Amino acid sequence: MQFGIFTVGDVTTDPTTRTTPTEHERIKATVEIAKKADEVGLDVVAVGQHHNPPFVASAPTTTMAYIAAQTEHILLSTSTTLITTTDPVRIAEDYATLQHLTDGRMDLMLGRGNTGPVYPWFGKDIRDGIALAVENYALLRRLWTEDVVTWEGKFRTPLQSFTATPRPLDGIAPFVWHGSIRSPEIAEQAAYYGDGFFHNNIFWPMSHTKQMVALYRRRFEHYGHGSADQAIVGLGGQVFMRANSQDAVREFRPYFNEAPVYGHGLSLEDFSRETPLTVGSPQQVIERYAAMADHVGDYQRQLFLVDHAGLPLKTVLEQLDILGGEVVPELRKIAAARKPAHVPDAPTHAGRLAAAHTQQTEEVAR
């Protein structure tokens, strides 16, 4: 099972000091956070894509390539790549280039985003969101799997005998997760193609998450990709930890109360009860997240949001020390002990390349 972090690249004022990082500071901090995640042994770091203030994550492949050049092991991903408003030709070429630069140490999560105004900025209509996601991804897959593509659709100009360059590394397209919070059509899309489904459930009760993942698993099996429990699932999460749970709550409360994403609404206690947000000791986080599989089955990727709400860089790096040193090692043991042998590991380029070679060998033997 893969454990990691994701960021949305928000520039938020620290409510305890009233200081706001500059865009330069926030971008540089994102890199330092990723390097720290690699240092403490996490598996994945995912960066967002936004095109509006107060976010600075407008160029994920640039950021990912820069991080990859300064890390050794961690896999780079996105949270998310906007499949609705980014040209699929641009996605195909940008991420294939990144795949080569990282020697396959990357994948991507596709999503529609949560900012309505982005659609007209890129000449799209938000009412076409689902249709854009479906059509654009169908084209993206062809651009990665076919050397020459002739195509015509509704939302972009036709392609005549077009070849996206570079071609995917080793002939293996980047692995795709389809990220969604509330759209069953996206769960269906992930299942149809046999791709991963990432339910970023950070604002939702587990009952909703359970329903969405169950739908994806049923449809994955329906389309013949394997049994329902072999479907590739990822979840989001939010944590803030200190050795003493009272200290964690006391320190995090002002950030929660003022955060643009969930401040001025439910209390910290209510939000923590209803969503995956866990503010407390490392042991509380271990117990909470070890139980996630009881609701959704054994799954392949767990990402945590740790750098939001104006938290200073020093605090975020401390959170990563706790996550990598105390929490993730225990969660890995628990996940490994409970996972049935027939449930696949999280996809990696090396693993998928090996599987392709095995399949070719078997076909030749037949």
Rank of each mutant, 00 (worst) to 15 (best):
K36F: 03
A37K: 08
E39M: 12
E39Y: 13
G41M: 05
D43R: 03
V45W: 01
A46L: 09
V47N: 05
G48H: 05
G48S: 14
Q49A: 06
H50S: 06
H51E: 10
H51L: 12
H51P: 00
N52G: 10
N52R: 14
P54T: 02
P54E: 06
P54S: 02
F55D: 11
V56A: 07
A57T: 15
A57M: 12
S58F: 10
A59K: 08
T61P: 04
T62D: 05
T62C: 07
T63E: 10
M64F: 09
A65L: 12
A65P: 09
A65G: 15
A65Y: 08
Y66V: 07
Y66L: 07
Y66T: 08
I67M: 06
I67C: 00
I67K: 01
A68D: 06
Q70P: 03
Q70S: 11
E72A: 13
I74Y: 03
L75A: 12
L75Q: 09
L76M: 14
L76H: 01
L76G: 07
S77R: 04
S77H: 05
S79N: 14
T80G: 03
T80D: 01
I83C: 00
T85C: 04
T86F: 02
T86Q: 12
D87M: 06
P88H: 02
V89K: 13
R90S: 10
R90T: 14
I91D: 00
I91A: 02
A92D: 01
E93T: 14
E93I: 08
D94P: 07
D94E: 15
A96H: 00
T97A: 03
T97Q: 02
L98M: 07
H100Y: 10
H100F: 04
T102W: 07
D103P: 01
D103L: 06
G104K: 01
R105Q: 04
D107C: 14
L108M: 15
G111V: 01
R112G: 11
G113M: 00
N114I: 13
N114D: 13
N114G: 12
N114L: 13
N114F: 11
T115D: 13
T115Q: 14
T115A: 14
P117T: 12
W121N: 11
W121C: 12
F122Q: 09
G123Y: 07
G123N: 08
D125N: 15
D125Q: 08
I126H: 14
R127M: 06
R127G: 11
R127L: 09
D128A: 07
D128G: 05
G129F: 14
G129H: 15
A131G: 04
